[in-house]
Design a protein around this nucleic acid. Structure first.
Length: 226
DNA sequence: GCGACAG
DNA sequence: ATCTTGTCGC
């Protein structure tokens, strides 16, 4: 699949920041989709020494969570890691991997934040706007925001707040295990995003989508760094 | 000025 | 993200 919205990636930090402000106005924070049968997970791995990146998109069956398809791509980092401008570093290789897909996913779960971002355009939202698709931001740690600790029970949730605005949720996917940070990526409500992430995490802290994508990039990276 | 800071 | 094998514990 190809992006619906295309824009340059060789930008300066200030240009990237301005572009985020522009794209952030296109994020849809409500559910906008029908039946969801295929869910994609995306992740990027880095070469320990060097500037190569490996991206993977794994599509899972929404009911069985079995892997339906895996697509990978390698690229050279063109943008440094700067908190808040993360997508300008990881999206280029991810778009390459997305273009190789034979199946069309109905929802994409990202390893990173959605609108739980300074300008409300984290990786998940940026990806969602570019492909005009439903996406969810799911991170192991937060970028910004304040929150209370959710109850120790699986499914317990607490709001992530920034400047009096709910920008995401802190979700306990497994009892007694550190919660994860879920946020709207695009075309999905926060409550629906929480439901899907919980459904995708039946056994482990992270959803199967990101676990599968993470494994895919490592396998691909090991083949290259050989 | 100080501390925080997705991967 | 990346350093990284065995090991403590349920």
């Amino acid at each position: 699949m190809k992006p619906v919205i295309s824009h340059p990636w060789d930008l300066s930090q200030n240009e990237a920041l301005l572009l985020q402000q522009k794209l952030a106005t296109k994020v849809v924070r409500e559910d906008k989709f029908g039946d969801i049968q295929l869910i994609a997970g995306v992740d990027v791995a880095y070469e320990k020494e060097g500037d190569k990146l490996v991206a993977a998109v794994v599509i899972l069956d929404a009911d069985t969570l079995n892997i339906v398809e895996t697509a990978t791509a390698t690229d050279v980092a063109q943008f440094p890691y700067i908190p808040g401008l993360f997508s300008f570093r990881e999206l280029p290789p991810l778009i390459l991997a997305m273009s190789k897909l034979e199946h069309q996913p109905d929802l994409i779960v990202c390893d990173g934040q959605g609108i739980a971002h300074p300008r409300r355009l984290g990786l998940a939202s940026h990806l969602g706007v570019i492909f005009d698709m439903p996406t969810i931001g799911c991170g192991k740690t937060k970028l910004i925001g304040q929150h209370d600790t959710p109850d120790i029970k699986r499914g317990a949730v607490t709001p992530l707040i920034d400047k009096d605005e709910v920008i995401g949720s802190v979700l306990r996917t497994q009892q007694g295990i550190n919660p994860i940070y879920v946020s709207i990526g695009n075309q999905i409500s926060l409550s629906t995003a929480n439901e899907w992430v919980l459904k995708l995490s039946p056994k482990y802290r992270l959803p199967e989508t990101t676990r599968s994508a993470d494994q895919a990039v490592r396998v691909k990276l090991s083949k290259i760094t050989s």
